[in-house]
Amino acid sequence: MILGFLPVDSFNVIVLAAVFVLVATGLHFTFGMLNVVNLVHGELILIGAYTTLQVQRTTGNVLLGMALAPLAAGIVGVAMERGVLRFLYDRPLDSLLATFGLSVIIRQVVQFVFSPNPQIVRSPIGGSFLLGGFNIPWWRLIIVLVTSVLLVGVIQFLQRSRFGLHARATVANPLLAETMGINSGAMRAGLFALGSAIAGLAGAMLAPISTLNPQFGLLFLVNSFLVVIIGGKGSLRGLVVAGIVLGGTLAALQFVMSTVMAQILILAIAIIGVRVRPLLGLLREWRGRRPLGSAV
Protein backbone atom coordinates (compact mmCIF):
# COMPACT_ATOMS: atom_id res chain seq x y z
CA MET A 1 0.00 0.00 0.00
CA ILE A 2 2.74 2.43 1.00
CA LEU A 3 4.88 1.40 -1.95
CA GLY A 4 1.85 1.82 -4.20
CA PHE A 5 1.43 5.38 -2.95
CA LEU A 6 4.83 6.35 -4.34
CA PRO A 7 5.73 8.02 -6.60
CA VAL A 8 2.65 8.63 -8.74
CA ASP A 9 0.26 9.32 -5.86
CA SER A 10 2.76 11.46 -4.03
CA PHE A 11 3.15 13.41 -7.27
CA ASN A 12 -0.61 14.08 -7.20
CA VAL A 13 -0.15 15.46 -3.69
CA ILE A 14 2.47 17.85 -5.06
CA VAL A 15 0.18 18.82 -7.97
CA LEU A 16 -2.77 19.64 -5.72
CA ALA A 17 -0.52 21.61 -3.36
CA ALA A 18 0.74 23.58 -6.39
CA VAL A 19 -2.85 24.20 -7.54
CA PHE A 20 -3.76 25.58 -4.11
CA VAL A 21 -0.76 27.90 -4.17
CA LEU A 22 -1.37 28.93 -7.79
CA VAL A 23 -5.01 29.92 -7.29
CA ALA A 24 -4.24 31.73 -4.04
CA THR A 25 -1.29 33.79 -5.31
CA GLY A 26 -3.52 36.22 -7.22
CA LEU A 27 -5.68 36.64 -4.13
CA HIS A 28 -2.53 37.52 -2.16
CA PHE A 29 -2.44 40.82 -4.08
CA THR A 30 -6.12 41.74 -4.08
CA PHE A 31 -7.11 40.47 -0.63
CA GLY A 32 -3.81 39.88 1.21
CA MET A 33 -2.24 43.22 0.26
CA LEU A 34 -5.10 45.51 -0.80
CA ASN A 35 -7.53 44.23 1.82
CA VAL A 36 -10.42 43.82 -0.64
CA VAL A 37 -12.58 40.81 0.27
CA ASN A 38 -12.41 39.86 -3.37
CA LEU A 39 -15.33 37.55 -4.11
CA VAL A 40 -14.76 38.09 -7.84
CA HIS A 41 -11.42 36.21 -7.63
CA GLY A 42 -13.03 32.98 -8.84
CA GLU A 43 -14.45 34.78 -11.88
CA LEU A 44 -11.01 36.17 -12.76
CA ILE A 45 -9.84 32.55 -12.83
CA LEU A 46 -12.90 31.82 -14.98
CA ILE A 47 -11.99 34.61 -17.42
CA GLY A 48 -8.51 33.15 -17.81
CA ALA A 49 -9.93 29.70 -18.54
CA TYR A 50 -12.56 30.89 -21.03
CA THR A 51 -10.08 33.21 -22.78
CA THR A 52 -7.93 30.15 -23.39
CA LEU A 53 -10.99 28.26 -24.64
CA GLN A 54 -12.01 31.07 -27.00
CA VAL A 55 -8.52 31.46 -28.48
CA GLN A 56 -8.30 27.68 -28.90
CA ARG A 57 -11.58 27.75 -30.83
CA THR A 58 -10.59 30.75 -32.95
CA THR A 59 -6.96 29.98 -33.75
CA GLY A 60 -6.45 26.41 -32.62
CA ASN A 61 -3.48 27.63 -30.57
CA VAL A 62 -3.94 26.82 -26.87
CA LEU A 63 -0.60 28.29 -25.85
CA LEU A 64 -1.56 31.63 -27.40
CA GLY A 65 -4.76 31.48 -25.36
CA MET A 66 -2.76 30.84 -22.20
CA ALA A 67 -0.54 33.82 -22.98
CA LEU A 68 -3.57 36.08 -23.50
CA ALA A 69 -5.48 34.82 -20.45
CA PRO A 70 -3.53 36.87 -17.86
CA LEU A 71 -3.88 39.93 -20.09
CA ALA A 72 -7.66 39.55 -20.35
CA ALA A 73 -8.09 38.95 -16.61
CA GLY A 74 -5.71 41.82 -15.80
CA ILE A 75 -7.67 44.25 -17.99
CA VAL A 76 -10.99 43.20 -16.43
CA GLY A 77 -9.40 43.47 -12.97
CA VAL A 78 -8.03 46.96 -13.46
CA ALA A 79 -11.35 48.10 -15.00
CA MET A 80 -13.19 46.85 -11.88
CA GLU A 81 -10.67 48.51 -9.56
CA ARG A 82 -10.73 51.87 -11.34
CA GLY A 83 -14.45 51.79 -12.02
CA VAL A 84 -15.80 50.55 -8.70
CA LEU A 85 -13.46 49.24 -6.03
CA ARG A 86 -11.14 52.27 -5.66
CA PHE A 87 -14.03 54.17 -4.10
CA LEU A 88 -14.59 51.42 -1.55
CA TYR A 89 -11.18 50.77 0.06
CA ASP A 90 -12.39 52.29 3.32
CA ARG A 91 -15.77 50.55 3.13
CA PRO A 92 -15.08 46.79 3.37
CA LEU A 93 -18.73 45.72 3.52
CA ASP A 94 -19.55 47.73 0.42
CA SER A 95 -16.56 46.32 -1.45
CA LEU A 96 -17.62 42.80 -0.43
CA LEU A 97 -21.07 43.45 -1.86
CA ALA A 98 -19.58 45.00 -5.00
CA THR A 99 -17.25 42.07 -5.69
CA PHE A 100 -20.12 39.64 -5.10
CA GLY A 101 -22.24 41.56 -7.61
CA LEU A 102 -19.42 41.68 -10.14
CA SER A 103 -18.84 37.93 -9.77
CA VAL A 104 -22.49 37.20 -10.52
CA ILE A 105 -22.43 39.52 -13.55
CA ILE A 106 -19.27 37.94 -14.99
CA ARG A 107 -20.62 34.41 -14.42
CA GLN A 108 -23.89 35.26 -16.16
CA VAL A 109 -22.09 36.90 -19.09
CA VAL A 110 -19.87 33.83 -19.50
CA GLN A 111 -22.95 31.59 -19.37
CA PHE A 112 -24.72 33.78 -21.94
CA VAL A 113 -21.77 33.81 -24.35
CA PHE A 114 -20.48 30.25 -23.95
CA SER A 115 -23.63 28.42 -22.70
CA PRO A 116 -23.80 26.52 -19.42
CA ASN A 117 -22.63 23.32 -21.13
CA PRO A 118 -19.32 21.71 -20.20
CA GLN A 119 -16.38 22.71 -22.41
CA ILE A 120 -12.97 21.17 -22.92
CA VAL A 121 -9.63 22.95 -23.25
CA ARG A 122 -7.05 20.56 -24.63
CA SER A 123 -3.69 20.28 -22.99
CA PRO A 124 -0.97 21.99 -25.08
CA ILE A 125 1.50 19.35 -24.00
CA GLY A 126 -0.15 15.98 -23.76
CA GLY A 127 1.09 12.61 -22.71
CA SER A 128 3.16 11.49 -19.79
CA PHE A 129 6.52 10.00 -18.93
CA LEU A 130 7.53 7.03 -16.85
CA LEU A 131 9.11 7.48 -13.46
CA GLY A 132 9.81 4.34 -11.49
CA GLY A 133 7.25 2.49 -13.55
CA PHE A 134 4.50 5.11 -13.01
CA ASN A 135 3.05 7.60 -15.47
CA ILE A 136 3.64 11.28 -14.67
CA PRO A 137 1.48 13.57 -16.89
CA TRP A 138 3.58 16.26 -18.51
CA TRP A 139 0.98 19.02 -18.08
CA ARG A 140 0.65 18.43 -14.35
CA LEU A 141 4.41 18.63 -14.01
CA ILE A 142 4.33 21.91 -15.93
CA ILE A 143 1.69 23.28 -13.51
CA VAL A 144 4.06 22.54 -10.63
CA LEU A 145 7.00 24.14 -12.44
CA VAL A 146 5.04 27.25 -13.50
CA THR A 147 3.76 27.70 -9.94
CA SER A 148 7.30 27.46 -8.57
CA VAL A 149 8.70 29.94 -11.10
CA LEU A 150 5.75 32.28 -10.53
CA LEU A 151 6.31 32.29 -6.77
CA VAL A 152 10.03 32.97 -7.02
CA GLY A 153 9.31 35.72 -9.56
CA VAL A 154 6.61 37.35 -7.44
CA ILE A 155 8.75 37.30 -4.28
CA GLN A 156 11.76 38.74 -6.11
CA PHE A 157 9.58 41.33 -7.83
CA LEU A 158 8.07 42.56 -4.56
CA GLN A 159 11.41 42.53 -2.73
CA ARG A 160 13.75 43.96 -5.35
CA SER A 161 11.84 46.10 -7.85
CA ARG A 162 10.95 49.75 -7.39
CA PHE A 163 7.31 48.89 -8.04
CA GLY A 164 7.50 46.28 -5.27
CA LEU A 165 8.99 48.79 -2.81
CA HIS A 166 6.39 51.42 -3.64
CA ALA A 167 3.62 48.81 -3.50
CA ARG A 168 4.67 47.65 -0.03
CA ALA A 169 4.83 51.27 1.14
CA THR A 170 1.36 51.97 -0.27
CA VAL A 171 -0.09 48.89 1.39
CA ALA A 172 1.52 49.78 4.74
CA ASN A 173 0.40 53.43 4.77
CA PRO A 174 -1.36 54.86 1.68
CA LEU A 175 -1.53 58.43 3.01
CA LEU A 176 2.15 58.60 3.90
CA ALA A 177 3.07 56.96 0.59
CA GLU A 178 1.08 59.57 -1.33
CA THR A 179 2.81 62.44 0.47
CA MET A 180 6.21 60.88 -0.26
CA GLY A 181 5.59 61.06 -4.00
CA ILE A 182 4.07 57.63 -4.66
CA ASN A 183 0.94 57.65 -6.79
CA SER A 184 -0.95 55.40 -4.40
CA GLY A 185 -4.01 55.16 -6.68
CA ALA A 186 -1.93 53.91 -9.61
CA MET A 187 -0.07 51.57 -7.29
CA ARG A 188 -3.31 50.01 -6.04
CA ALA A 189 -4.58 49.66 -9.60
CA GLY A 190 -1.29 48.00 -10.56
CA LEU A 191 -1.50 45.55 -7.67
CA PHE A 192 -5.11 44.68 -8.51
CA ALA A 193 -4.19 44.17 -12.17
CA LEU A 194 -1.28 41.95 -11.18
CA GLY A 195 -3.43 39.84 -8.85
CA SER A 196 -6.12 39.54 -11.52
CA ALA A 197 -3.58 38.56 -14.19
CA ILE A 198 -2.17 35.83 -11.96
CA ALA A 199 -5.72 34.57 -11.33
CA GLY A 200 -6.21 34.52 -15.12
CA LEU A 201 -2.99 32.56 -15.55
CA ALA A 202 -4.21 30.06 -12.93
CA GLY A 203 -7.46 29.61 -14.86
CA ALA A 204 -5.56 29.02 -18.10
CA MET A 205 -3.20 26.50 -16.52
CA LEU A 206 -5.98 24.57 -14.78
CA ALA A 207 -8.44 24.53 -17.69
CA PRO A 208 -6.83 21.53 -19.45
CA ILE A 209 -7.10 19.33 -16.34
CA SER A 210 -10.73 20.28 -15.63
CA THR A 211 -14.08 20.47 -17.35
CA LEU A 212 -15.04 24.09 -17.94
CA ASN A 213 -18.42 25.52 -17.04
CA PRO A 214 -19.52 28.93 -15.69
CA GLN A 215 -19.18 27.64 -12.10
CA PHE A 216 -15.51 26.75 -12.69
CA GLY A 217 -14.12 29.69 -10.71
CA LEU A 218 -16.24 28.98 -7.66
CA LEU A 219 -14.39 25.68 -7.19
CA PHE A 220 -11.28 27.61 -6.27
CA LEU A 221 -12.69 30.59 -4.38
CA VAL A 222 -13.06 29.08 -0.90
CA ASN A 223 -9.72 27.27 -1.01
CA SER A 224 -7.97 30.44 -2.20
CA PHE A 225 -9.30 32.37 0.80
CA LEU A 226 -8.39 29.51 3.15
CA VAL A 227 -4.81 29.49 1.92
CA VAL A 228 -4.37 33.29 2.16
CA ILE A 229 -6.00 33.55 5.60
CA ILE A 230 -4.24 30.57 7.17
CA GLY A 231 -0.92 31.59 5.61
CA GLY A 232 -1.21 34.97 7.28
CA LYS A 233 -2.88 37.69 5.24
CA GLY A 234 -0.19 39.56 3.34
CA SER A 235 2.50 36.90 3.77
CA LEU A 236 3.58 35.10 0.59
CA ARG A 237 5.80 32.69 2.48
CA GLY A 238 2.89 31.80 4.74
CA LEU A 239 0.70 31.35 1.68
CA VAL A 240 3.13 28.79 0.25
CA VAL A 241 3.21 26.82 3.49
CA ALA A 242 -0.59 26.91 3.85
CA GLY A 243 -1.08 25.92 0.21
CA ILE A 244 1.26 22.95 0.55
CA VAL A 245 -0.30 21.82 3.84
CA LEU A 246 -3.94 22.20 2.73
CA GLY A 247 -3.53 21.04 -0.87
CA GLY A 248 -1.20 18.22 0.03
CA THR A 249 -3.44 17.05 2.86
CA LEU A 250 -6.53 17.13 0.66
CA ALA A 251 -4.82 15.06 -2.02
CA ALA A 252 -3.51 12.56 0.51
CA LEU A 253 -6.92 12.25 2.22
CA GLN A 254 -8.62 11.57 -1.11
CA PHE A 255 -6.75 8.26 -1.28
CA VAL A 256 -8.36 7.00 1.90
CA MET A 257 -11.81 8.67 1.89
CA SER A 258 -14.33 10.36 -0.38
CA THR A 259 -13.62 13.83 -1.78
CA VAL A 260 -16.51 15.30 0.23
CA MET A 261 -15.20 13.87 3.51
CA ALA A 262 -11.68 15.05 2.62
CA GLN A 263 -12.94 18.58 1.99
CA ILE A 264 -14.81 18.55 5.32
CA LEU A 265 -11.62 17.50 7.09
CA ILE A 266 -9.68 20.24 5.28
CA LEU A 267 -12.18 22.82 6.51
CA ALA A 268 -11.79 21.47 10.04
CA ILE A 269 -8.02 21.76 9.71
CA ALA A 270 -8.47 25.30 8.42
CA ILE A 271 -10.62 26.27 11.41
CA ILE A 272 -8.03 24.83 13.79
CA GLY A 273 -5.33 26.63 11.80
CA VAL A 274 -7.11 29.98 12.12
CA ARG A 275 -7.46 29.36 15.87
CA VAL A 276 -3.84 28.30 16.38
CA ARG A 277 -2.05 30.74 14.05
CA PRO A 278 -2.40 33.80 16.31
CA LEU A 279 -0.98 31.71 19.15
CA LEU A 280 2.00 30.83 16.96
CA GLY A 281 2.38 34.52 16.19
CA LEU A 282 2.45 35.34 19.90
CA LEU A 283 5.00 32.61 20.47
CA ARG A 284 7.24 33.96 17.72
CA GLU A 285 6.98 37.50 19.02
CA TRP A 286 7.82 36.21 22.47
CA ARG A 287 10.95 34.67 20.98
CA GLY A 288 11.80 38.05 19.50
CA ARG A 289 11.40 37.10 15.87
CA ARG A 290 9.48 38.92 13.15
CA PRO A 291 5.73 38.67 13.60
CA LEU A 292 3.62 36.75 11.11
CA GLY A 293 2.00 38.68 8.33
CA SER A 294 4.87 40.67 6.85
CA ALA A 295 4.33 41.83 3.28
CA VAL A 296 6.37 39.12 1.53
Binding site: H166, A172, L176
Partner: peptide
Protein backbone atom coordinates in the same frame (compact mmCIF):
# COMPACT_ATOMS: atom_id res chain seq x y z
CA UNK B 1 2.63 57.50 11.89
CA UNK B 2 5.70 58.43 9.89
CA UNK B 3 7.12 55.00 8.98
CA UNK B 4 6.05 52.09 6.79
CA UNK B 5 5.90 48.81 8.73
CA UNK B 6 8.17 46.13 7.29
CA UNK B 7 10.41 48.59 5.40
CA UNK B 8 13.99 49.38 6.36
CA UNK B 9 15.54 52.79 6.90
CA UNK B 10 17.23 52.39 3.50
CA UNK B 11 13.84 51.64 1.87
CA UNK B 12 12.38 54.84 3.34
CA UNK B 13 15.24 57.00 2.14
CA UNK B 14 15.17 55.32 -1.29
CA UNK B 15 11.49 56.18 -1.67
CA UNK B 16 12.12 59.76 -0.55
Amino acid sequence: DSVFSGLTVRNHLTIA
